[in-house]
């Protein structure tokens, strides 16, 4: 994966597959403590603790079209390369929380990439799922919530090209405003 937004797209895809109705992505960065943390939480079907403990092993997958699952192992590898870690917490019928910890300044940390495009694309392609994206810097917090967007749109779908364009711009400007590391 070229950047963190692609990992996020991929991990969110697991949540979609797990039947989640709400998917929350939270990024917290802090230049002083050198932390860059990504937390992805869903209310999908979850996993048993025993299974969750094993899913960062590529040979553990519920997919049937190939024998290895790569999403979580790749994210883990990238996090650990910066001295960070990956944690998978899950409960059957409740949901799953994935926490990836990176060193913000480590040169091996992939850049964030096109997170606005990623969140809007997820929202546009999955109109029935609520997506929340929160980005926290030392300066401020930005929150994007498709429930609020839908309330504003009053029935117009997020997948409308003009809406997609606007939302991408809006996220980009707001992230710039809170001074994200990129």
């Amino acid at each position: 994966m070229k950047d963190l937004s692609m990992h996020i797209l991929d991990i969110a895809q697991n949540s979609i597959t797990a039947g989640a109705e709400t998917i929350e992505v939270e990024i917290t960065e802090n230049r002083v403590t050198d932390q860059y943390r990504i937390v992805i939480t869903d209310n999908g079907k979850g996993m048993t603790a025993a299974y969750a403990a094993k899913v960062t092993d590529p040979y553990v997958t519920s997919r049937t079209t190939r024998k290895v699952g790569l999403g979580l192992p790749l994210l883990k590898q990238n996090a650990e390369r910066t001295g960070g870690s990956l944690e998978v917490k899950s409960e059957p019928e409740k949901g799953t929380r994935i926490t990836a910890l990176f060193s913000l300044k480590n040169i091996d940390r992939p850049p964030l990439g096109d997170i606005g495009g990623t969140m809007v694309l997820l929202a546009a392609a999955n109109l029935n799922i609520r997506f929340i994206y929160r980005h926290i810097t030392e300066k401020d917090t930005f929150t994007f919530d498709t429930r609020e967007v839908n309330a504003t749109l009053e029935g117009m779908p997020i997948s409308e090209a003009g809406v997609i364009r606007f939302l991408k711009e809006m996220i980009r400007e707001n992230l710039q405003e809170i001074n994200i590391a990129g």
């Binding site: 790569l70 999403g71 495009g117």
Partner: peptide
């Protein structure tokens, strides 16, 4: 429908999806 498993995403599925949305409009 654009396939978006790990291998699809890693090989550029997102750009392709963006392209379809923009060009259809």
């Amino acid at each position: 429908k654009v396939a978006m498993a790990t291998c699809g995403i890693a090989s550029g599925a997102k750009q392709v999806m963006d392209f379809f949305i923009e060009e259809f409009e």
